[in-house]
Amino acid sequence: MTSYNLEEELSKYVGKSAGEPFVALDEVNLPMIRHWCEAMGDRNPIYSDPKVARSYGHPGVVAPPAMLQAWGMRGLGFEDPDKSSLRTTFDELMDLLNENGYSSVVATNCDQSYGRYLRLGDRVVAHPTIESISDLKTTGLGTGYFVTTTTQYKTPEGEQIGFMKFRILKFSPKTTFNHASNSTS
């Protein structure tokens, strides 16, 4: 049994930075854009053809805006197998919820806005904050907490290039969740 009040512990995370600003491991680059477009079936030529991109007023090939979050992903943590240097406040929060039986996770909401289209060579820096943690909720998936983070995406020089509000449900599964449409968020 845990000897602390979970909700009290959770409240300590609200408003905190979710981690140090995270500098994207890769610059915005053609191969990652192409892999994304292949997966999504996106044939928009501004993501592959510099001439077409320029004809629409871009300086060259640009990245699909929806890739915003992907640039700031940590991947498998190859550069630090123990992940000790990669551990963030957000990871601590996830561990706390895992320890209390809320071991499953689904993303429920994502709101992104884009300052400008990202160009080859841009380096994205993600600045995440834990915005809110809900009360314990019962959903179609099971009981758990909605955790909302907001992330400012900037260049290393501080130019605002995007913003994201992201919500997950960290929950203890009821049974199998093949009817998540019953969930509430």
């Binding site: 999504m40 996106d42 929806a66 979050q69 499953s104 993303a107 994502c110 992104q112 099971g142 969740f177």
Partner: peptide, 18 residues
Amino acid sequence: GSKDIFMNILTTNGLVGR
């Protein structure tokens, strides 16, 4: 607790944008 693998939200976002 899931019946199988399922699509991540970033893919949904990409598909919606496309």
